[in-house]
Design a protein around this nucleic acid. Structure first.
Lengths: 147, 147
DNA sequence: TATTGTTATACTCTATAACTATA
DNA sequence: TATAGTTATAGAGTATAACAATA
């Protein structure tokens, strides 16, 4: 006799499907995981990469300013920048007795080029799932959502 | 003499502004934090709430099926459901010697009503920042992004 | 006194590996 | 042998509180 299986196995109703918060969370988690895998060979995590790219765009900026820009608390910026400094990617100059002026080392600039390319590659992969005007509208909506 | 301050204080350039992954992550983090604060008085976290609502919509479903629906690994479903059972919100019946049939207790049903209302309230708050057609388009795009 | 960064610590969510019990 | 659930553990990211050093 046949095994009578899977007749309604994946037939669960998802009551969260039409929630923006839920879809946002799922999509974000998926993309961050993808990006994480893409960045893994560089030894950097997505958050570290974001800090590295902000420093490249703002040579000599302060640690706290980066955190403010990226929504990372001062407390959490400490191990983040420490790891970049330890990895030889970032220099911690002195701006002031109490603040650091962060800049990229030569290795940091090379790494920034590499990871920037990987991020571009990931964005391109996303675009293959979404037509360009939809992508732009999406970015616009998300930015507006955050104010 | 005036203190000559803040002349270029918040003037950092954000090179990630036009990245979908970045905006998605920031928006998601913001919304989840908001929802978390809104849910705090109930003693439940966002993830637990999502499980509770899935059980309400699928009485008697299995633990693993919920995880599959929500993208939560079996390993992580364990403490999640354990906490709901311990809180008297969920009953773990037996479906099979090896699987559990999850259902809501009376308290669980009441709690589901409460948190469902809070989630609705949060979604409404989001909508006030986004016109309805934009919201619908956003949900559609996010859902499509995930396939 | 306010600012910048730091330490210590805890929480939430997720991830891997190895295991038990049942089918 | 495959399936459902579990245990132990680690990691990434974020949070609060208390503190030191400098301005």
């Amino acid at each position: 006799m046949a095994k009578q299986r899977n007749i309604e196995a994946p037939a669960l109703v998802n009551p969260l499907e039409d929630r923006l918060g839920y879809q946002l969370r799922r999509a974000s988690a998926l993309l961050m995981a993808e990006l994480g895998r893409l960045l893994a060979p560089t030894g950097l995590r997505p958050t570290e990469v974001s800090v590295l790219l902000v420093i490249r765009a703002n040579e000599g900026c302060q640690q706290g300013a980066i955190g403010e820009l990226l929504g990372i608390k001062p407390t959490n910026m400490v191990p983040l920048t420490a790891r970049l400094v330890k990895g030889g990617l970032v220099d911690r100059g002195r701006a002031d007795g109490r603040s650091h002026a962060l800049s990229l080392t030569a290795a940091g600039r090379a790494m920034a080029t590499t990871v920037s390319r990987l991020v571009d590659q990931h964005e391109a992969a996303i675009q293959s799932r979404l037509d360009p005007p939809t992508r732009d509208h999406l970015i616009d909506s998300l930015t507006r959502l955050r104010r």
